[in-house]
Amino acid sequence: MQISLDLITGVLSFLFTLLILSYLIGDNPLFRIAIYLFVGITAGYVASVIWWQVLTPRLFSPTIPALFAGSMIERVIIIVPWLGAVFILMKISPRLSKIASITMAFLVGAGAAVIIAGALIGTIIPQVSATINFFDLNVAIARNINVAEVIGNGTIVLVGVVTTLSYFHFGARPQANGNPRRFVLIELFAFIGKIFIGITLGVIFAGVYAAALTAFIERISSLINFFGNF
């Protein structure tokens, strides 16, 4: 009898699904076995991925051709990663660990620059512009949105953004009894902003629940399909 690969994967999938679902009755050894196996398999898989998809094709393979047959730019491009890798490996030695700070400084500096620039160009400025242009009817018409929806959505978004930002305004003045108190208008906006924040958290919770529920349904469905095929 020839055992198909689908059967093996189906059995394993069924088995580990049961192990994971056993967490519904609480933490137990079966669940832990599944978790440990998952961690170990993931670690091994990630290591193989890094070897076959990162180190070999991007570092090891191009080195010799670049050094002996490449141009000066290619040589520099291939030497720089090698230097960075060697410097990072210096962290093994406590004496030479400071050399790794060169590579780390490059990574931190370049990463910070990319993140800040990306956030500024890709999130802050476009989001501020979008909030301002919510009442732009031309934009709405271009996106096939009717006027009432534009006004309604724009109003909610504008009020929600303003009141939520007011909630995070913590400036206050001391009163006669010594207790600090925010400005009355800010206090009102903050109260409304608190409602929007609560709604947002509720939406996120609903999204998390919906995602988890979908995953649960998919697992049950896969089990049923597995047994249905036999």
Binding site: P126, Q127, S129, A130, F134, V139, R143, N153, V157, T200, V203, I204, A206, G207, V208, A210, A211, T214
Partner: peptide, 15 residues
Amino acid sequence: SAQAAPMIQPYYDSG
């Protein structure tokens, strides 16, 4: 995912 959609919605609104 359903859990990430509310956070991505502003990027759709911004175009």
